[in-house]
Each structure stands twice: as structure tokens, then as C-alpha cells.
């Protein structure tokens, strides 16, 4: 009797594990391959790009969409390969390297000390639907440039990027967010160049 009961339990578990579900698509955001023109006189300083901090829900690899401005849900069969913060960091690092804005660029994992630190906080990274069934990629992130020696903030800026989606599904959202991330990286690079000129690092 005991043996029969044990087999029954195993059968239930096997049945649960063997449930069939459609395959999940994983997406990633690759850095832009568009060639950039490097500036002639780079900023003579070392910049470390710190890992972007995000709200807890955006730390996962779920692909979220927003409906009716406040209802949030995740696509069942579409996911990111990495957290949005990691993908933004990768794209920004690539953009800065292409532009050769700083003499030396350090990733967040580097043990070397830097002159400047770029901190950021991600508040939104969603595929957002509006009432008229149109949708867009929506990113809201704030960046701060900090002097590592004095620990004082040099400049700060909030970036809100909206990129229309071509289709009202996960694929359309991924494409829109990919474009938004690329625009974001370009905007941040331009901003850092402007800050460098303001502080007379670039003549």
C-alpha cells in the first residue's frame, strides 16, 4: 500500500513537470553598430561607469509592458537575456568607446581607481501602450557625474526616451526599446561632452 502511494506522488510530479508550454523568446539589446566620429581632443581623465541601479521589479529579465498608464504585466513568452540595467550599461560603454570621449574608460568591475564616476538610476524600462492602441518604448533614467576625489557631484541629468513601436506585440516593444537604448547612449555621450566643455576639460 505504501509503495502504491509513493508511485502515485511521483506520477503527479512527473505530470506537473511534463506540462507543455510554448517556447520562450529571449531578446537582448546590442550596442549600435553605426560608426561614430571620434573627437579630436579627448577628456584627459579616467571615467568609471558604475552599474546602473534600478527599482526591484526592473532587476529581473522580465519584459514588462504598461497599459492604461499604471497596469504593469510581463510578456509570458518573451524575456530579456539580461537585466535592462546591464544592457543599458553595455550600450553606453560601447558608445563612449566609439566616441573616444575619455582618455581611459573603466567598466564597473574594474579595480583601478578613476578620476570621475558615472552613476545612474533606472526608473522605467517598459513597452508602453496608449489608449489608442499605439505603443512605444519608454525609458526613464537619471545620470550623475561625480568627482571621485572630492566625492562632489559635477553634473546631473534625467533622460526620458520615447521611441514608437512598429507593432503592438513583444517584438515591436523590443525593437522600440532597442532604439531607445541606442538613443539614450548617444544622448548621454553628448551630455558628457558638453559637461567636459563647460568644465574646460575640452578646449
Amino acid at each position: 500500500m505504501k509503495t502504491i502511494f509513493l508511485y502515485a506522488i511521483i506520477a503527479f510530479i512527473a505530470a506537473g513537470c511534463s506540462a507543455l508550454r510554448p517556447s520562450v523568446h529571449e531578446y537582448t539589446i546590442l550596442p549600435s553598430t553605426t560608426p561614430h566620429v571620434a573627437i579630436t581632443q579627448p577628456i584627459n581623465a579616467t571615467l568609471k561607469v558604475s552599474s546602473t541601479r534600478s527599482i526591484p521589479s526592473l532587476a529581473s529579465t522580465q519584459l514588462y509592458y504598461l497599459k492604461n498608464t499604471s497596469r504593469i504585466d510581463a510578456y509570458l513568452y518573451s524575456k530579456w537575456s539580461d537585466s535592462p540595467s546591464s544592457m543599458i550599461d553595455r550600450s553606453l560603454t560601447s558608445s563612449l568607446q566609439n566616441r573616444q570621449l575619455f582618455a581611459t574608460l573603466l567598466p564597473a568591475t574594474s579595480s583601478a581607481s578613476a578620476d570621475l564616476i558615472l552613476e545612474s538610476e533606472l526608473s522605467a524600462f517598459y513597452h508602453r501602450f496608449s489608449d489608442d492602441s499605439k505603443s512605444e518604448g519608454f525609458i526613464d533614467v537619471t545620470y550623475r557625474l561625480i568627482d571621485s576625489k572630492t566625492k562632489k557631484m559635477i553634473a546631473s541629468k534625467r533622460f526620458v526616451i520615447l521611441e514608437p513601436a512598429l507593432s503592438a506585440d513583444a517584438k515591436g516593444g523590443v525593437d522600440a526599446l532597442t532604439k531607445a537604448v541606442q538613443h539614450l547612449s548617444e544622448n548621454i555621450t553628448d551630455w558628457l561632452e558638453a559637461v567636459g566643455k563647460e568644465n574646460l576639460w575640452i578646449k
Partner: peptide, 29 residues
């Protein structure tokens, strides 16, 4: 990720064996 999994289990504990709940599919899914 673990928090999401635990959340779904808390909402529907029987899913661990029977996978009874049907989550809402996203737009276009």
C-alpha cells in the same frame, strides 16, 4: 527572479504539481 517565482506560487500553489492557472498572455501572444 526568485521573488517572481515565489509570487506566482503564492498566488497559485497548486501550479507546482498541476499547473492549473492560466496566466494572462501579453499583447500579441
Amino acid at each position: 527572479e526568485m521573488e517572481l517565482t515565489l509570487k506566482s506560487l503564492r498566488e497559485s500553489p497548486s501550479d507546482i504539481l498541476f499547473k492549473e492557472s492560466t496566466p494572462n498572455p501579453g499583447p500579441g501572444e
